[in-house]
Structures are given as C-alpha cells and as structure tokens.
Write a protein that binds this DNA or RNA. Sequence first.
RNA 1: GCCGGAGUGGCGGAACUGGCAGACGCGCGGGAUUCAAAAUCCCGUUCCCCUUAAAGGAGUGUGGGUUCAAGUCCCUCCUCCGGCACCA
Length: 857
Amino acid sequence: MSDYLPQEIEKKWQKYWADHGTFRAADPATDPRPKFYCLTMFPYPSGTLHVGHGRNYIIGDVVARYKLTKGFNVLTPMGWDSFGLPAENAALKNKADPREWTYANIAKMKEQFRVWGVEYDWDREVATCDVPYYKWTQWVFSVLYRRGLAYRKKAPVNWCPSCNTALANEEAAGGMCERCGATVEKRDLPQWFFKITEYAPRLLDDLQLLDQWPETVRTMQANWIGRSEGARVDFKVAPGGTAAPGCAGQPLPVFTTRPDTLWGVTFMSLAPEHPMIPALVAGTPQEKEVLAFVERCRRTSAVDRAAETAEKEGVFTGRYVTNPVNGEQVPLWVANYALMDYGTGAVMAVPAHDQRDFEFAKKYGLEIKVVIQPDGQKEPLRAEDLTAAFVDAGTMVNSGPLTGTPSPSGIPEVIKFLVKQNMGEGTINYRIRDWLISRQRYWGAPIPIVYCDICGEQLVPDEDLPVELPPTAEVDFRPHGESPLAGDKKWVAAGKCPKCGGPARRETDTLAQWLCSCWYYLRYVSPVRPGQPNSQAFRKTEVEQWMPVDQYIGGVEHAVLHLLYSRFIFKVLHDAGHVGAVWPEPFRALFTQGMICKQSSKTGKLEKMSKSKGNVVAPDAIIRQYGADTQRLYTLFIGPPQKDAEWNDSAVAGSSRFLKRVWEQVENSGGMAASGHVVPYAGSGSDLSPNAKALWRRTHQTIKKVTADIETSWQFNTAIAAVMELSNLFADSAPSLAADPHGPAVLRFAAESMIRLLGPIVPHFSEELWEKMGHEGGLIAAGWPSYDEAACREDVVEIPVQVNGKLRSRITVAADSPDDAVRALALADEHVVKSIADATVRKVIIIPNRMVNIVAK
RNA sequence: GCCGGAGUGGCGGAACUGGCAGACGCGCGGGAUUCAAAAUCCCGUUCCCCUUAAAGGAGUGUGGGUUCAAGUCCCUCCUCCGGCACCA
C-alpha cells in the first residue's frame, strides 16, 4: 500500500519523459509511423500562466499524447512570440532591458509547462526575438518585397496614442486598439504595407478547403475580406460650376453594387480624405467651407464617426459631375459617411434606393428620383411619398434603354451597357485593406531597408541579414511617436547601399510581431541543429514531410489577425517556391478553445480570466495541494472545450478525490506486481459470473466511449465521466469479485483499462500506476486499448414501456428479442394493464432494445 | 441593424440518427467513523402534492405546429454571448 503523492511521482515522470526523449519527433523519412503535426499557438512570454491559459496547452498535450499512443510520429513543438510591447513597457517601468525581461519570463514559463506535465519537443524551440530567428523574419519581408508585395506609402493610418505606434486595420477593428483598448486616431504617416489585398480572392476561396476549421472563424474571415460584386462607373467632373476650369473632365470613378439604380443618381459624395478635394475647390467660394469641413472630419475619431448616433453631414463643393449614362450633371458633395478606404472614396448617391443617401438628401433638400418600381404595386412609386429608401428588387423605370428590366437582371445588363459605351465595367470590391506592418517601437525586427541619397530605397541583401537591433544601452526607447531606433544616430548611419556601396540610412521602423508568428510553424519542422549553420529559414524537404499542421489549437481572438496573416504569408512563400509541393494552406484542422472565466472582484461580473480583471487563479497553489494531474483533470472535466467555462475552486477537490479513489482501487484490487502477476481477463465473457461479466462489459463499453469522445469530438468531459462511471462500478463489484473464479483477472483488466484511458489526461498518475502494475516501457509504448464490439453488447436489456407516450413501466428482456415477444410481455405487465384498463389498444410501437409505446384510446 | 453561437435542476454540464430528460461532478441534506474536527465512506438530492413510501402530476427560454413519441425537427417571439457595423 502506498499513498498517492503527486508531488513525488510528477517530478519522477517529468524527468522520465525528458530523459527518454518521449516527445522528440522522429525523422519522417526513416520512421514508418504516419506523421502528426500537433501545434498549439505559442504564447507571448508575459511571465506567468494562469489556469485559464492552461486549458489551451493541456488540450494540446492530451491530443499529442493520444496520437503518440495511437502510433503516430507526433511533432509537438513550442516556442515564444517574444517581440512586442509589454517587454518594452515593463522594461521602461523597471528601467531594465526588454531582452532580459523577455528571457527571464521564457525561463519561468517553460518551467510552468514542465510542472503541468505539458511536454514538447524542446529541441525545436524558437523565440521570435532570437537573432537567428528574426534574421529569417527579415528574409520573409524580403521575399515579399522582391515579389512587389511590400511597399511604403504615406497614408492616413490608425495610430494608437497609448501604444505610440501605427496599427494594422485588423488591430484597430471597431476603432479601438486591439492590445490596449485605446481609441485610435488617424495620422498621415509614411508606413510599410503588405499587399494582402492582392491575395484577397484566394484567401476567400480557399476557406472552402478548411472544412476542419470552426465555421465561426471561416465566417469571420469571409466577412473581414468582404467580397462584393458590382461595377465601376466612370463619372467625370463637369465643366459647369465655379472656377478651377482645369478640373473639368477629370475622372471620378465610383464603385456600386447597384448599377441598376444608375439612372437615379442625384448627387455624388466624396470622402473627406479624397485626394482630389483641394484641387476641386481651389480658388472657389466654397473652398474655405469645404476645407474646414474636411479638417473637422479628420479630427473626429473613427469611433465617433462610425457611431450609430453620428449625424450624416456634408458640404457642397460647388462642382458638378456628369453621369455617363444620361449625361446629367449632378452636384458634387463632400460627406462624412463616404469612406476613403472603401471602393474609390466616391459614392454615387441614389437617395430613392439607398437609405444613407436618402437621409442625406432629405437633410440637405437634394433631389430624389425613383428608378426602381416595386413589383406588384400599380401606382408608380413617387419620391415625395417616400419615408425611407426603397432598397428591394423591382422593375427599372426612368432608366433610358433599360426601362422595364427587372432590377436583378438589370445589374448585368447595365454592366454590359457600361462596357459597350466604355463608361465602366463589372468589378469585384473587397473590404480588406493592405496590411500595415511597420511599427514605431524598439522591440521588434528592424525592417531590412536602407535609404541611399543616390539610389534611394534599397532592400538589404540576404547575405547582409540580420539587421540587428542596437543594444538597449544605445537607445532611448521611450515611445514618443517616432521609432526609438531613429534616436540611435550611429546605428541609423551604419547602413550601406547595396547598389553603389555608399553610406545609407537605415529604416528605423520595426516589423509587426504578427509577421514573426506567420512562419514559426515552418521553423519548427526545420530547426537548426547543433553544429549546423543557420543558412536557411527552413528546408523544403522537411517542410514537405511535415506540413500542413494536422491540428492547430488556439484562441478564437486570432481569427482575423494571426490566422489570416499566416494564411497569407504561407501562400506567398508557396508561390515563391520556398515550401515545395504542399497543400496551399498551413493549418489543416483548427480547434478554438473557449475561455476560462471567473467572477471578477472588480466588476462583479463573470469575466475572462485575466490579470487586469483581478480574477486569475494561479496554478501553483493547486499543484502544491493536489498535483498537476488534478488541475489537468479538472480543466478537462470543466465542460466542452470549445465553450467558455467558469472556474469553480471547490470543484477542483472533486477531481482530486476521483484520482485518489482510482489509486486505491488499483492498489487494492488491480493485482499489483508485488502481489503476484495477474493476467488481465481476455476471454469471450461466456465463462464469467454475472457480476464479473458486468464489469468486463462496462470496461469494453468505456474504452469504446472514451476513444470516440477523444477521437471524433474532443469531449474530454464526457470521456472522463465515462471513466468515473467505470470506477464507480469497479468499486461496487470489487468486494464480490475478489473470490470469483475470474474475478481478479476481470478486475485487473478493468484497472489496466482505466489507467490507459486516463493516460493522456493525467499522465503522471497513470504512468506511475502502470509501472506499479508491473509494466515496463511506459504507457505510450503500450498503445491505446482496443475494445471488442461483441463484448460491448448487453445480453439483457431493460425497455421502458409507455402508454400514450407516458412512461408506465419497464420490462426486462433478452437483447434482440423478437417484437412479438416484447409486445406480449409489455401488454401483460401489471402497470400497463392498469393504465389501459378502460381503453382499447390501437397500436403498439416497438423500437428494438429501446422502447415500447402502446397507443390506446 | 446584419452574421454566427447558445438558453436543460441550487451550480458546471449529460442525452446515439426523434425513443426512459437530468449521466458524471460540484454543492446541499441525512447517517457512519471520531473525544471533536478534517479527511473518508454510505444514503438521498428536478419541482409540486404527500408524515414517509407507493402512486400521481408538471417539467429542457416563450407561444404554436409535425409525430405513436420532441431538449432534439418546423414556425413565432424573448434573452444572453461573440463578431461585424454609414462597406456604397
């Protein structure tokens, strides 16, 4: 007899796995096992992981262990997304070096993984802030640059005043900084962009390949990419209006999804940021007012501009534009509801058939012209009667040659007409914008570009990579709106023009951390091994052997950030021929786990576990008191892993209780090695007593259930519940089975099965018991238990008997009894007889082995 | 507003393809053990009626429908969570 002492056995097995290289992936070229790439999103090394973080890694560890046990060559790597703001902020606060802060945190968190029993192939570890790693992040930039997918341009960009850097649109969704929640501003700054828009069609189409991704993530990406079909229509500035004659004839194309309403255009709205505005109003009486309005719009934050309450506002430019289809001249306005970064920044306004245009027209007394007549309405729709825009389909009216066409078919007709007249064409517009990748912060990979006074912007050649960050001692990295690197004059001046060999200024912006995490899964498959030169980002042959990732596990918050960026970068590398002949997507299957929540002492509400909400549960105390296996068990038992769950401190004890109980059961009745080796029962069951048979059968059923739960639906909670049920039956039958002829053998079979099924879930506990039972070589080598379908089948079943759908009795019959026998038995049952006493039986429905329903009236 | 997801005991959650609602666990109540407590074990635990038991009745957000049978399928409405939101 020995007590369950998690602290001792957990250390022992953690050492065992490390010593035996249990989680070291084998070379797929020589290993006969099928490969399985199990990837859990790597964390930002913020210092400590709480139990909420743990869920992610524990799930990944269970999957990796399960697949290993099933006989796969599993690759399960881990690393650190270690560039980014918190390191800098922490360093500023503590007057320390972000480098030191980061590596200290990495060491702490690595230890936390070890203590959890969450194991990885650490030989492949990467930290994105390692110089040998970011050398290749810079190379990825170069790949895009050389393919014309990276460019620098001055543009109004999202600026986070709190983080002091420009942000990508994806990081500023909803007008708030994704990291700190501050309201973003628009600033005109020269910034680096990746042409993700060029890949929009493929990023959208290939979502169809991702049938093992959650529907929500695919939908979010599809919405973000935002494809809409329509037409470009070439309006032109009309000669009329005030002054500035040079503008006349200038093209002002618009994008519309409703070319069928083209004859209903009564004005045009330009976005306040539209670049043609200054020229259009130069020297006109409207100039002052227009420019003042533009300035006011610019100062309004994106949040306020997009707010539901935001009033539509605009100002007339004094100019007119010509509608190409009918030659009509309509007034040109600047309006705050027109967006510069969608379409062309100019909107053809059809107030009769677009609600926004309608509101604007009503406010400023602009003309409203009906060109779509609702079907099934005799009276012509009159503009004066409209209280809202009529936006549905109908029949085109007052539309020149297309009058009378049903509006849905009118759309392609109008496009045909436009093309023929050379006035426009059918186009597809995407909502997604190019990806802003430059950051004005220190702790990131420098963008490998130099500026030569003679040759201009030049890419740093591959052989000169990495462009290393200067040591922190040289840099004042307090954020102040310009990249801190710019303050290190020596570093900036150290650039060399690759073309003329002369001195060149270095680019001082750094790359967004998102780029670092776009390719890390490729570095894992192809790490630099000791003694090897760091001469490639990754080797094509290894990429071909391991990619795609078979299972990716992480949080849904990355749906349109990391997961979209990674798909994009992978496709570019694919196109450039760097990853070889592999599937065009990096991640075959994606699992997004739910968050662990807890009541916040600050808000009083149920909130995602986080330091700022003051509701974190540290794993340390739990591990000290109960052991890591208890925490693992509870984390998996808490609920379906894809759903959010509330952490309940008192329920943790229940998980510990269960482990203790199983421990004692196995020690007392499992046939330990010390008490003489008992061979687990492997017969057909026909020689067993009823009690023994029940436990034997339940064991087979449990193996079946747990296998299905883990394999197909990741229902760890119900898998654990099934083992609990088996354990409960074990406890009930153990006393009587001790003296049963096959009793000890059946108990041994049940005990071994419980341990093996719990193996991936509570690995230290299971390994220890497995060893105590006299097995060598560990649970993974033992393989996953199999079950016998015939053994799962009950030979006696209890069938509920309903009368008119209400449960009245139960009968016990042999499994697969003929319907006639079941019917006779059911109708003879005393409870049934009573409830159909004064009625006649109309019908008896029998579902074999399941249900009898007697319809009586 | 639009697009997803979800509403089941005191709580977390089970329920195959339409077939016994509430598995498993937490909590709670009762008991055993103990000088006492902790721990452990046993019994009970959807609600209503009932001293108890038996036997009933009601019950899966709302209201309707299909069916021998509905948590599950169809329609209506309500609530909550997530995402997007003046996208032309």
